[in-house]
């Protein structure tokens, strides 16, 4: 029966049965209890619901669950439990890249995708990558400082 979707979520296989047009976002938050992925707008503008689908950053509010069948999904919970998270998370906090936190999981997901393809992105590359993650608190400057500190390996003053 095709109204069942089976996918790998943060490394383990999960099965969803129900409306195949259910938003991946709702499946993650409600069926899977993974509330680190946030809904900010529900139309793919704010990026708060960003997840990695087959390694590509996407808005989970715009992915019907039927399309992740047989695919690999990584959420903030999965990313935060691996070895690469610590340094990025720490530097985001330390450099003022985190204020209210509502955009933060999505920002982390996008930055992980960016760093995967470019371990030392320029400021311009970070700005372009983050254009789909709206932040209303930081003015983005703290996030940019954090990535610069991470890839430059420098302690800020």
């Amino acid at each position: 029966m095709s109204e069942r979707s089976t996918f790998r979520l943060n490394g383990r296989e999960v099965v969803y049965e129900g409306d195949p047009l259910a938003r991946l976002l709702d499946v993650l938050r409600e069926a899977q209890g993974l509330t680190g992925t946030k809904e900010g707008c529900g139309e793919g503008e704010c990026g708060s619901c960003s997840v990695l689908l087959e390694g590509a950053v996407v808005c989970s509010c715009l992915v019907p669950v039927l399309q992740v069948d047989g695919r690999e999904v990584l959420t903030i919970e999965g990313l935060a439990s691996d070895g690469a998270h610590g340094a990025l998370g720490e530097v985001l906090v330390r450099e003022g890249g985190v204020q209210c936190g509502a955009c933060t999981p999505g920002v982390v997901v996008t930055l992980r995708a960016l760093l995967e393809r470019d371990p030392a992105p320029s400021r311009a590359a970070v700005r372009e990558a983050l254009a789909g993650n709206l932040c209303r608190c930081t003015g983005y400057e703290g996030i940019l400082r954090a990535v610069a500190a991470l890839v430059g390996g420098e302690e800020s003053a």
Binding site: T35, T37, L88, E90, G101
Partner: peptide, 30 residues
């Protein structure tokens, strides 16, 4: 995670930061 500073003018690590970057902070809809 910052060394003990305890003084105004320093930059101690915000205590709510880690839960916000790993998605564990609980907002009302969560």
């Amino acid at each position: 995670t910052a060394p003990a500073s305890g003084s105004v003018g320093a930059r101690p690590t915000r205590p709510d930061g880690a839960g916000k970057v790993d998605g564990s902070a609980v907002y009302v809809d969560d």
